[in-house]
Design a protein around this nucleic acid. Structure first.
Lengths: 340, 340
DNA sequence: CTGAAAGCGCTAACAG
DNA sequence: CTGTTAGCGCTTTCAG
């Protein structure tokens, strides 16, 4: 059905080895210009397409990368994926993309199948703070870059937002609006995005001299709206004065927080200001529109891909440290002055 | 670094061929139970992982499928992708996912690279009404299924919504609210989703006895908000009585329509009712929340994957016709009674 | 039931 | 500059 290199060689009256060299830009110069010409013509005529499997087997380079994301339907990830593909696609790589649903077992299992497919490298948006897959990758010395999340043990390079700064900016902004009682809805603590933001919140509260007793933290069971609603209710049901602002660890949690308010007879931003993280699509159109940090999602994908490519190419072996990208605070309707 | 079948065979004191049979569930029965046991143990011990490239080269089955989507950041597609992966992933397939940006040249080029990777089948969410890639696939007799979009020449099976019915339901619903002047913002006419919905609109208008002169159609240059805004402005700037309702060919266009209203001093749904298509995420939270058809995106992916799998397995060769899935109309705030 | 041998399609050393 | 050879790691006939 499809023609092979041997077919081309035969039709061109040369040896397969010669045809191979003629077809490959890097080794073309080893073949007479006329021969190259002829082989190229015949190849085009026969609609020859090299078999990547055979080439990969021979060269042990598959030009495939593995891309692990928690869930493609979370709008945070598609822009990252596109950034990755933009860079790596241009370099001849294709991406095997899998969803792990934040399930460590599934993550390991999917990683193994990708490994068997001899991916040349990996990009992981799925890392837990302690992640067996990351350890397995580091042990085998396979090129891989983390994105959005980082691990406790800095085994691999990572690209993420500058969360500590962002949290501080959020607190400063809320203080400037007159808020003194600021709560935090944190994400799961086995993820860096849950843990680091919570730690940064605690630090910022202290640094700004706010009363920790009036700045409670609730840990959501997942980065979704329902969990945000639950955590928010926990905060608002406490005895004592309620907070006037809540910093949520991502946009979905923030939406959950806003949803929770009605059952307390409260409204955002009248009674409570809410800030999210990431600026996923359409946060400018929900009601109220959400104040949040615009994570440079596409750029993160690009950056991670560039690092990975350089590593695979052997151009530069990256430091296993985190690159922090700046995220501007986008101020919208969900934040306002603290109620009197 | 990684151990091969030969390593396992040597360590187990058997021939590689025997080890292969022992490791493969289908041929295991040809090997003595004791030998199987030993090989399995050694394999586990050495952490043996079969090389998919080598296996694929030998068997000409890569257990990879190619998944072409226009743009992963369009929230319509991730749920479809997840549906596909759910079915095919469970069957041992991995998906190479690429974005074509509705660029025919890019589509062909990406398809070729996927073909070289010897994908066992394809799922295309990218088809144009006349699509060279679809023709190339059909000519080569490669298993492939279209999703969401179909082609004019029914060369491949497709899974899509029941657009003709939906359009009729939309018109009937608007008529029941008292609307008589209903316009349509159509999508690009080189896509089935643009073309079929426009034809169905024309047919429904006629069928219901509405005056075609008062039911104008504008064709948007793309399925995005900006194009929807432009097309809407075109409709609203016409001489004569303005429509009281606009059916948009998808949700993004509908949002564009709603955005366009302010510059005409109009409001949705007070002056104009708007209906979209697909029910992408958060259409329930924008302002006004959008009345739209809930496309069963995940289910479409599942269905398409099932058809593809059966085809690849040789279990059943599908008819090259379109399977229409029902889409319920979700009524929200963007539709209301026609103004007096 | 196990071993031997061949070959999937390609590239890379080496020899001529 | 071209041809020869070998082999990547696996499966699959075919003998034994």
């Amino acid at each position: 059905m499809v023609s092979t290199l041997a077919d081309v060689a035969r039709a061109a009256g040369v040896h397969p080895g010669t045809a191979s060299k003629a077809l490959n830009p890097d080794s073309r110069h080893l073949v007479a210009a006329l021969t190259v010409q002829r082989v190229l013509e015949i190849a085009a005529e026969l609609d020859y397409q090299p078999n990547s499997l055979a080439r990969g087997l021979r060269t042990s380079r598959s030009f495939t990368i593995g891309l692990l994301v928690p869930d493609l339907t979370n709008p945070l990830f598609p822009p990252i994926v596109r950034g990755v593909e933009e860079v790596l696609g241009a370099a001849g790589y294709s991406a095997l993309i899998v969803n792990t649903d934040n399930d460590a077992k599934k993550e390991m299992q999917l990683f193994m199948t990708l490994l068997n497919r001899r991916c040349d490298g990996f990009i992981l948006a799925t890392a837990f703070r302690h992640d067996p897959v990351v350890e397995a990758i580091a042990k085998r010395n396979i090129p891989a870059v983390l994105v959005n999340r980082s691990t406790e043990s800095h085994l691999l390079p990572a690209v993420a937002g500058d969360e500590v700064t962002e949290v501080r900016v959020a607190i400063e902004f809320l203080i400037s609006l007159g808020h003194r009682r600021i709560a935090h809805v944190a994400g799961p603590q086995d993820l860096s995005t849950g843990y680091i933001r919570r730690r940064a919140f605690l630090a910022a509260i202290k640094e700004k001299g706010l009363d920790p007793k009036e700045c409670p933290v609730a840990i959501a069971s997942g980065f979704n709206e329902e969990a945000g609603k639950d955590a928010s209710k926990q905060i608002l049901s406490r005895l004592g004065k309620r907070p006037t602002a809540i910093l949520a660890a991502n946009d979905q949690l923030a939406i959950g927080v806003i949803d929770s308010l009605t059952s307390f007879g409260m409204k955002c931003p009248r009674d409570i200001s809410v800030i999210g993280f990431n600026d996923i699509p359409r946060m400018d159109r929900i009601n109220p529109s959400l104040t949040t940090f615009a994570l440079p999602k596409h750029e993160m994908g690009v950056k991670a891909a560039q690092i990975l490519k350089a590593w695979i190419d052997g151009t530069s072996i990256p430091e296993p440290s985190t690159i922090h990208l700046e995220c501007p605070l986008v101020i919208r309707e969900s934040t306002g002055p603290a109620p009197a």
